[in-house]
């Protein structure tokens, strides 16, 4: 099962949604809304853990951050979320987001995909 749009490719494998972002340098609130609406429309009301793979994102607006990490919106139907840290920028972005917009679901960052998936399987 695979969902593709201008921002990402999302595949459902072993009951975990794996998201690979395209090269987007900036995410605005408008982008964030499209990302979330598309995901919910495609996977409907089913709940899954989510893995966000390597993403070359330079910045995310504050309003977009608020939206993406709110359980009513961006985190809706997500049981747990894991991120793969690829660069120093990822590290800063995620540290900041986890501090300021702390997701109210299980959340972690990983250096490699296998460790992330092993952790997410706990929430299937």
């Amino acid at each position: 099962m695979e969902s593709v749009n201008q921002y990402y490719t999302a595949t459902l494998t072993d009951s975990v949604i794996q998201v690979q972002y395209r090269q987007i340098s900036h995410i605005s609130i408008r982008d964030a809304r499209t990302i979330v609406v598309d995901r919910i429309r495609y996977f409907q009301d089913r709940q899954f853990p989510v893995l966000i793979k390597r993403a070359k994102i330079k910045s995310i607006d504050k309003t977009a951050r608020d939206f993406l990490f709110d359980t009513q919106f961006g985190l809706k139907n997500i049981k747990a979320i894991a991120f793969i840290e690829f660069s120093a920028v990822d590290q800063i972005l995620l540290k900041f987001i986890f501090h300021q917009h702390t997701p109210r679901i299980p959340h972690r960052t990983f250096r490699n995909e296998n460790d992330a998936l092993a952790w997410l399987y706990l929430y299937r």
């Binding site: 800063i92 972005l93 900041f96």
Partner: peptide, 11 residues
Amino acid sequence: NFDEIDAIASG
């Protein structure tokens, strides 16, 4: 570059 300087700028 997505290096340390970019990380600081991003933060």
